[in-house]
Every structure is written in C-alpha cells, then in structure tokens.
Design a protein around this nucleic acid. Structure first.
Lengths: 233, 233
DNA sequence: CCAAAAGTGTTGAGGGTACACCCATGA
DNA sequence: TCATGGGTGTACCCTCAACACTTTTGG
C-alpha cells in the first residue's frame, strides 16, 4: 500500500479589515472572515498558497496532528476544532496518491491578532482567495458551507469571541460570517432563549450610548451537538 | 510512515422482522432497521463480528472502495452512499495504527431480500448488536445518529424504497427508523409540500381499503443537500 | 353494512420577522 | 439636547401537531 495520509486544517478567524483592501463603503462592520495559508516551498505546486498541514503522525491522533500543525504555522490555539471530511480522490496530487483528513478550526479574535504572519504565512479573506494548491479551493468552499450551516443551529459563533461578550459583538460575528444583516431585537431574543448563555452583571461603558450587558457561555454545555462523537478526537 | 488506511461501511436496510425474534406484540409494522456484519477470520478480534471493509486501494477512490467491498460481502448495490467520518484514534487496533474512513449506505428493500447471508455474513437489528470488533459499536452508534438526523431534513428515506411507493410505505420507513409513530395526515402534507416528489396516476389495489396513490421522486433532485460536496466521491 | 386505510379540513400553539417604541449614555 | 446603539413590546404570518371527518375499497 502506498497511499500517503495527510492532515490539513481550515482555520477561520475574524480579523479587522485592512483599510483600502476592499470597498469598505458600507462600513457596517470592519471585520472580515479570514483564513491563514502557507506558501509551498517545494513541488508539487511550489510557490502556491495551501492549507497548513502535514503528514499524519503514527504516534498522534488525527485531531492532535491538526492542532499541532495549526500551532506550528500560526502559533494559535483553536477554540473549536472539528473534522471536516476525508478527501480521497485519485487525482488530488500529481505525485502519487494522497488522502487528506481535513479539520476546520475557529480561533478567538484576541488570538488572531497575535497570529504569526511572514513571507510564507499570510491571512486571506475567505471569500477572496487566489488559486490554491491541490484541491484546496474546493476544500475551503466546503468548510465555509459547513461553518455557515453550523452557525445557524449551534453556538459555535462563541468560539470567535473572548470569555465575555456583548450581544452586539455576537451578532456581528453572525453578520460577518453569513454576509447579511440581522435584526438586533430578534437576534437578542433567539440567543437569550437558547440554553447555555448566561448574563453577567457587568456592562461595557465608554460608548456614546447605553452600556450593553456582558454575557458569557456556560462552558459545561457543548458548543455543538455532534451526537455520539462528543468528546472524541 | 506506517499508518494503515482502511475503508469500512455501515449498511442500512429495512428487513422483515423474523417472527419470534423480538417482542412483535405491538405489530405496528414488521420491518426492522438492519445492518450486515462479517465475522472476522483472523486476529485481531478473530471470531468477532465487524463492519464490512478492507484496506484502501491505491487505484480506487475511497467511495469506490466502500461500494466494492459492500458488493463483495453482500452482493448489494447501495441506493445512497455517503462518507461518515475518519476514525483515527491511537488505540483503535491492538496491532499497529489504523485509520478507518467509514461510509454509510442505504440499500433498497427489494435488494436487501436478495442479500447474501452465510456463516460469515449475517444481518443484525441496528438496535440490538453484539459486542463487535475494534470500535465498531461506536461507529455504528454514530452512523445511526446521522441517519436519524438526516432523515428529518432530507429525503434519503426514499433510498430504502423502490422506484414507486405509497405515502404509507414512506411513512413506515420513517416510523421504523425513528422508532415512533407519525400522524398520517400531517406526514402526507409535509411530503407533498417538499420538492422532488411526484404523484403518479397509478394506484395500488388489493387491500381491504381505498387504493393508495403511488408516488415517485424526481431523480434530477439530489437526495440530500451536501453543499459543495454534491456529485463528489 | 362494516372495517380499514386513504385522503381532506380545521383549529390552536409556538416561533420567526418586521417594526414601533422606550432607555441610558457621551458629547 | 441630540445622536447612538441597547433593550422591550407587539402584531402578523407561517409551520406544525392534533384530531375530526369524509372517501373508497374488500369482505
């Protein structure tokens, strides 16, 4: 058997939009859903951008490998990590047969700002990617679809934010990821009705308006219902 | 690298309940959600029942391998085939490291009756399994969870039935899989409102009641919305 | 006529959307 | 006092669960 087994990760974070990078005219918010990519330094696809990853390690679970590679390239730790799919088509790599088990991860805003960026590591807007190595464009397209789907029936949005957050911040996460505005009143009620959300007694002052209440999540509640796979790698 | 890559499949079919096999007192329906398993003939877990599968083939896509192994053990062709998950924990096999890409499949009722069964291939009720080899009990548990979830937001139930079917038959599929009775009137309206279902002009005669209309599915509509993964292996 | 399942009608509860409106703060 | 978002109230619509009721067959 000469099938190579690789592990890659699609890493999502919300990062401030660089002024002038895009048409920020609407200025509803200045966060952009972003993905870090690494530049390949050898064939195949030398010079092209690709998902961070590497070969599976015999002494490590697949999820651990994903998290380790994630840290090695971006110096980040994910707030959420889930397996996306095992890609196993024949023609994925021009050199030999490679099966890639791909994970997707969410990192917090605070962390994403510390993220390492260099000549061979750069962040890209999720909706504005160049042509990538292998089938990575399609992989990211699928990861995006999963993220947007899952955002609507779970509370993974929380993984983009810090320990405490206002409902406005949480709503902004949804708006940026889903690319559509949400009614603040209805969003508030939906979130407050969902289990696991806890209002604190703290408020944020400083804005030229009524100080919003801070919320946090009950960490004993899972971020997403993955059924019997909960707490597994 | 010495990680072995395996492909296994959880195959679901509705099969007539064997009289006396269970308490069939309620007698609402006599179909049972069933899974074919193969008896292992070598270590590890020699003699235990396990999911049909084998090593990944370098010249075959993962889905093709799943379908081929499925046919080799049961002589069946699946009406629906989808990747379930890649299981990659360290301690899955006592001999070396094995990563299993698992698929799940649905086969039609008509086919399931022709299914090969022998000393080393036997059908089991999905909710009444013995202790299996490896982590296959947990894998099936997860497959069951996915099946039951997906049944409620897609039309995969159709894959259990033939070309044409009555709404009663379709409802029975749901009832057997979900283990709960459904209101015939409401079920009818939900199905008729969903896209892709087409009423025919044929009716089934012979019952001691009003002859039910036969329906079929518009085959140009996908069974399930798998996003950008549609039409992929 | 009766039993049984097919198929239709109706009602009420709950959830989501749209939108009007009040509240608290900084400037 | 005004602008700005925080936060509340409410009316409408749509979907779904429950269940009464009519229809069509075989016996």
């Amino acid at each position: 058997m000469s099938i190579e087994l690789a592990v890659s990760t699609v890493i999502f974070a919300l990062r401030p939009a660089v002024a002038g990078e895009e048409a920020v005219e609407q200025a509803v918010d200045r966060m952009v859903l972003s993905i870090p990519l690494v530049r390949r330094t050898r064939e195949p696809f030398n010079g092209r951008w690709a998902l961070p990853g590497g070969w599976a390690d015999e002494a490590e679970s697949l999820a651990d490998t994903a998290a380790r590679k994630l840290f090695e390239t971006t110096e980040l730790s994910p707030a959420y990590l889930e397996q996306l799919y095992a890609f196993g088509d024949l023609e994925r790599s021009p050199f030999g047969r490679v099966v890639s088990v791909v994970y997707w991860a969410l990192v917090r805003e605070e962390q994403a700002q510390l993220a390492a960026e260099g000549v061979n590591v750069r962040w890209f807007a999720a909706d504005d990617l160049p042509e990538l190595a292998f089938d990575h464009n399609r992989i990211i397209e699928y990861a995006l679809w999963r993220l947007r789907n899952k955002l609507e029936y779970s509370r993974i949005a929380h993984a983009f934010l810090g320990e405490t957050f206002t409902l406005s911040e949480l709503r902004q996460v949804h708006e940026v990821v889903l690319c559509k505005p949400l009614d603040p009143a209805n969003f508030r009620r939906q979130v407050e009705a969902s289990p696991g959300i806890v209002p604190t007694d703290q408020h944020v002052t400083g804005g030229r308006h009524r100080p919003p209440r801070l919320y946090r999540y009950d960490t004993s509640v899972e971020l997403a219902d993955n059924g019997p796979l909960a707490n597994r790698t």
